[in-house]
Computed example of a mutant assay.
Amino acid sequence: VVCVQNMYGIGASREQNEFLDLCGEQRIAFVPFYSIAGTGRTAGATTDHNPEVHTIARAHGVSAAQIRLAWTLHQGSHVLAIPGTGDVDHLAQNVAVGFLRLSEEELIALDPLHHETA
């Protein structure tokens, strides 16, 4: 069984968070779209990243979009994000995120950004 969520990433709504939690409790895969989009959501990836996202990205030597995607993947082992792309370089960056590990401190630093709109 798979739960597909149209939009989920940093800044998701309280209802989206509840849905993610419910899927995890039921041991159901959660497959969100638009994890990288941020404030752009359906308009595609945003360049309007919070300074904290940029700081963490620089520390890892990756893009802010990769940090957004990594944050989503860190929300549980049942989360399988789909960061659509038509660009081979972006595809390689998206795959590389699977090896990116955010520290507990970094996740804590990103948490307030998620709850700004939640």
Rank of each mutant, 00 (worst) to 15 (best):
C23S: 12
D87M: 05
E52K: 15
E15T: 08
S63R: 02
E104V: 12
D21E: 08
H78E: 15
L69M: 04
R68C: 00
R14C: 06
G84E: 03
I36F: 01
A70F: 02
P83V: 12
M7S: 02
V95K: 06
H49V: 13
I108K: 10
H49F: 15
I28W: 07
A59M: 15
R58V: 11
Y34D: 04
A57V: 06
H54L: 07
E105A: 14
D111K: 14
L80Y: 09
G76V: 07
C3K: 01
Y8G: 01
I108H: 05
A92T: 12
H115S: 12
G11K: 02
E104R: 15
T85C: 00
P32H: 03
G76H: 10
Q66H: 13
E15A: 12
I67R: 14
A65M: 02
P112R: 07
H49N: 12
A57I: 04
F99W: 07
G84P: 03
A92R: 09
Q5A: 15
I10S: 01
R41G: 05
G11I: 04
V97K: 06
Q93E: 13
A96G: 05
C23P: 09
S77D: 14
A45R: 14
R14Q: 05
D21H: 05
R58H: 14
D111A: 13
G86D: 09
A12T: 03
S63H: 01
V53Y: 11
H74P: 08
H114P: 03
A29W: 05
A59Y: 12
H54T: 11
R41L: 10
P83Q: 14
G40M: 06
T39H: 06
V4N: 10
S13G: 02
L73M: 15
G76I: 06
F30T: 03
P83S: 11
P32L: 10
Y34I: 01
E116I: 13
R68Y: 01
A12I: 02
E52V: 15
P32G: 05
Y34K: 09
L110D: 00
